[in-house]
């Protein structure tokens, strides 16, 4: 089973040189720690910044510089600040190359649910609906099963969805999977020590297994 950091680490291997990337709150934020130094990438924060730097040292904390998770941040050389309208223009306009976000459920056709649990508190979708409706390349970081053990990789989402047919890749604590264009979770890699059988058992949606499935290396 992968730790949250290992999920982030595995996702970071999907990052390509010269990409503009939007990282969601939670595990996706950790991905920034594992992007290789030799790649030139720019991180976008939808509250109006391209070029997110590391968290500040105590003496550099600036309340006027936060990321979309409201954490204090710094800016990098060559960064640019802009309004929320400009920010979502670049998102909807397809200028952001990669979106990495968390999910509560993903369906085998790439639908994602991550904003609402009816009957419980509704926090709102923030920028997630705009991001998933617009990005060509969406990677989801999530747990394979809920705390009670039920699969979160489903035939159809049971929770209110955030976007339809948009997820391309998924990294869970058990596996790295891709969404097949005709539907289905294509198993690409197993987490260390996890068997194909266990993944099959814990995937409610259609699992596609072709040949030998390699184990992830860290």
């Amino acid at each position: 089973m992968l730790t949250k950091d290992q999920i982030a680490q595995r996702i970071a291997r999907e990052v390509e040189n010269r990409q503009h990337i939007n990282l969601g709150i939670g595990i996706p934020t950790l991905v920034a720690n594992y992007i290789p130094d030799e790649l030139d990438v720019v991180l976008q924060s939808e509250n109006g910044l391209l070029g997110i730097g590391p968290f500040p040292t105590e003496d550099k904390v600036d309340p006027d510089l936060i990321n979309a998770g409201k954490q204090t941040i710094t800016i990098t050389k060559g960064s640019v600040l802009f309004s929320s309208a400009e920010s979502f223009a670049m998102i909807r306009g397809g200028h952001v190359d990669l979106t990495i976000l968390g999910a509560m459920e993903v369906s085998e056709n790439g639908d994602i649910a991550n904003w609402k649990i009816p009957g419980k508190m509704v926090k709102g979708m923030g920028g997630a609906m705009d991001l998933v409706a617009s990005a060509e390349n969406i990677i989801v970081a999530m747990q394979h099963c809920s705390r009670s053990g039920s699969s979160k990789l489903l035939k159809e989402c049971t929770l209110p969805i955030t976007g339809i047919r948009c997820v391309k890749k998924i990294v869970t604590d058990l596996a790295f999977l891709e969404i097949h264009p005709d539907g289905g979770f294509v198993l690409k890699e197993r987490a260390p020590g996890v068997t194909v059988e266990e993944i099959r058992e814990k995937t409610e949606g259609k699992l596609i297994v072709n040949g030998n499935i390699p184990e992830m290396k860290f």
Binding site: I66, G69, Q71, T72
Partner: peptide, 11 residues
């Protein structure tokens, strides 16, 4: 200018 999530890097 209250900060919601003060997140810092240790020197």
């Amino acid at each position: 200018k209250r900060i919601e999530q003060k997140t810092i890097t240790k020197k």
